[in-house]
Design a protein around this nucleic acid. Structure first.
Lengths: 227, 227
DNA sequence: GGCATAAACGTGGTATACCAGCTATACTCC
DNA sequence: GGAGTATAGCTGGTATACCACGTTTATGCC
């Protein structure tokens, strides 16, 4: 067994760790960080830290404030609306192409992913579930055979992860999401182009509505309603 | 009058300049460059150069080959297909939203942009025309009121610029493009949702076909057909 | 006490020196 | 002459010292 951490650069390690901390909201939206502070905490010099920060800024997860530090990107209601809107655009297009050009291998993968559940109390299983969900949607997108589309969608799904980690309660939506995913697979299996697009649209809109409901209930405190 | 170059960082200046050289194909697709070489040429140290290179890599315009240098991203036929495909997805969605929610100010801007022509022999006017074309499509996308969508589209249009700069002859398509753009504006003015989507689709597909035709004629040598 | 002012601290920005790894060249040995 | 090997010169990767600028805090004057 190799130790992959030794093979990759410090900058890459810093980037992965930093991004994960942002997505987990261990670094809260709006929080300020500095290069030196991160360098101390990650036990490396400023150089790889700067590179990692540069990357997460490019990902839109942080903002660079020259002379003042770096701010973890706040999340606004508009952000959430835009992310779901763009997801809808990309995934509907991808689903259409997937249904027109189905791959038995991908269908099998999707069927397996669609069945994954998670248990209520286990934070780890929540994280695993989100990862599975992301893989499901990316696998579907890959059927469109457009790497740029897949990459853009992955960026959006990563931002979604962060929103969920703000503390969204998933307990009531587990069975619902499984069913929604299975509907997508079912439509794909019979090559129902209209059906899969309907299923995808329903799934994304339902997911958006669940998030929005949580915000209106004040469950997701860090979300800025304005802006 | 201020001298803006003094206000921005060396890293930012290096990024802008480097990106422009890539888009202009002054740095040819597939060409290798090194940090030290760029540092000498731009008359600054490795540090800001590294940051600029990091950015263009993230933009997909370069690839980092650890221990060997940086390679200007090659352009493949698949790339071109994917870019146009994704453009179609994003712009159709944006056009739909624009037609449903028209803004008189944006219509006026689009009408003005649609009329811009260029002269055959002047390289500068070619560049200006490409910029106008980009602005036209971005202005339309802004009507969708989704900044993420606009940003993603801008990335694609920047890659388009690079393809055109490979040496595509635009001479035969000037009037054609002006007419295509005017059709889009006309549909938008009367709020014809179907019409604007048809016009956008026609315009993008026609543009793609013109590029593909050039490639098949061997006009765009640097394009890799495989990969 | 309140306000202006100055000094101390923290920030990102940059240059530089050094390191490990890879490449290509040239040299030696067969 | 050809193949294997050593070496010189690249490459990106990292740590560090220093700089200018902005912010905040403390200080002294009113």
């Amino acid at each position: 067994m190799t130790i992959p951490e030794l093979d990759i650069s410090l900058a890459e390690r810093a980037y992965v760790r930093l991004r994960q901390e942002i997505l987990n909201c261990d670094l809260a939206p709006g929080q300020m960080v500095s290069e030196r502070e991160l360098a101390r905490r990650y036990d490396m010099s400023k150089t790889p830290i700067r590179e990692a920060l540069s990357q997460v800024c490019h990902d839109g997860l942080m903002h660079r404030l020259p002379g003042r530090g770096y701010m973890v990107a706040p999340i606004t209601v508009k952000d959430i609306q835009d992310i779901f809107d763009l997801r809808l655009i990309l995934e509907l297009a991808a689903a259409k192409r997937a249904a027109e050009n189905p791959s038995p291998k991908q269908i099998a993968t999707l069927k397996e992913l669609a069945g994954v559940r998670y248990s209520l109390d286990d934070r780890e299983s929540h994280i695993a579930f989100l990862r599975t969900n992301r893989t499901f949607h990316l696998t579907l997108a890959e059927a469109a055979e457009n790497q740029r589309l897949v990459d853009r969608l992955e960026e959006l799904l990563i931002e979604m992860d962060r929103i969920f980690h703000l503390g969204l309660r998933l307990r009531d939506s587990s069975e619902e999401m499984v069913r929604e995913h299975q509907e997508v697979v079912a439509a794909l299996e019979i090559g129902d182009v209209e059906g899969i697009q309907d299923a995808i649209a329903r799934q994304i809109i339902a997911s958006r509505d669940r998030v929005m409901e949580s915000i209106l209930q004040g469950e997701l405190q860090p979300v800025q309603v304005s802006g």
